[in-house]
Design a protein around this nucleic acid. Structure first.
Lengths: 125, 125
DNA sequence: AAGTGCAGTTTACATTTGTAGCTTAAGCAA
DNA sequence: TTGCTTAAGCTACAAATGTAAACTGCACTT
């Protein structure tokens, strides 16, 4: 995923993306609204603006049916790993190991995390 | 470090912070400028603005001598781990292990990183 | 003592982001 | 058919951000 796509997803827009990622299929504004109005307390107009911006940024696709249906163009995984690499570039001198060391040293890992990681690195090759 | 400090450091401001973190002692504007003008191509006025904003945000301390000397109030480590936790909260459901899993799956780790991690989580208790 | 230069402060201005209203047109209810 | 509802598009507007100029006063030079 290129920088000019993901880097432009703002916090508010990300909430919309998360919703679209969770959905199996494309969603009409109605449903997007239903789910965000409660959780975020946004006005319908706000949600429309966010969707429009995501579409114009090319990260959400709109498909005309009776009404427009929206779906993500980029996957959540792609976005996540892009954001992670971006963090590593910006503040860990580009070294993933520094990020992890920081996590370990700042007690950023729960016991559960550690157990999980121990599993992960036991079998991984 | 509380959210209201670190969350307000913007990208441009971060460049100034990085410089201050690298410095052993407090620096006068002159030196900050010298180092940033080349690397970032910023006008002196821009650099002054960034410093002023950092001071007003409380993340940089200014000490009056002949002229003001500036030094970071928060450490780079604190900032890094705050930023990392923020990322985990925002896009990894609060689970550090998901971040690491993402790194592993997206080839974000070098062989050396992986070896290091295997060591790290082999002995940890 | 007067002039210059630059630190420090104030102001500026375009773009992005967060948040939302207004307008237009089309579908559905009456 | 007439109007109500609402999707879609356009406009709005304050705060934050990136970038920088203008102003002010002090220190150092001549």
């Amino acid at each position: 995923m290129s920088d000019n796509l993901a880097s432009k997803i703002t916090d508010s827009e990300l909430e919309v993306m998360k919703l679209l990622w969770r959905a199996k299929d494309a969603l009409p504004v109605t449903e997007i609204r239903e789910q965000l109005q409660g959780s975020k307390g946004w006005e319908p107009a706000t949600i429309k603006t966010l969707i429009a911006r995501l579409v114009s940024k090319g990260v959400v696709h709109q498909e005309k049916r009776n009404v427009y249906y929206y779906s993500p163009v980029i996957t959540e995984k792609d976005y996540s790993s892009w954001a992670t690499k971006d963090l590593i570039t910006r503040i860990y001198n580009g070294k993933a190991s520094e990020l992890i060391a920081s996590l370990v040293n700042s007690n950023g890992l729960s016991q559960a995390d550690i157990a999980e990681l121990r599993e992960m690195f036991k079998v991984e090759e």
